[in-house]
Amino acid sequence: MNKLVCIACPAGCEMILEIKNGKVISVKNNKCPKGSTYAAEEIESPKRVITTCVKTDLSVKWLPVKTSSPVPKEKLFDFLAEISKIKISKPVKAGDKIAEKLLGFEGIDLIAGRTIEI
């Protein structure tokens, strides 16, 4: 029996997992289906969304960004290093894709968190 705190939302359910051969076979104590999805992923191949900032030449010096989907946890710092190379010199809108396929990963893009007009 394994305990796992769900990070899918602020409720932070303390789930109880049954794991066999590296696979989750049952999840208890989760209040919603996000918990079982998260539990399976966390045990088999943990992932995290990255939120950080990238430098700009605009009126707001740092643009908050996030990855469009979670990245493999063991590659977190590779992604951060890649993101830190990006510089923004044109106005952006919240939701704009400012980089695609980070480190060649299909479906992992970088999304602007706010609008910077000038």
Partner: peptide
């Protein structure tokens, strides 16, 4: 700039700046 905002209000997970926007 971290995420976790808006799950109740917008039914999706937003960062602080996204929620503000």
């Amino acid at each position: 700039i971290h995420n976790g905002f808006g799950l109740h209000r917008f039914k999706e997970e937003l960062t602080g700046p996204e929620y503000a926007q």
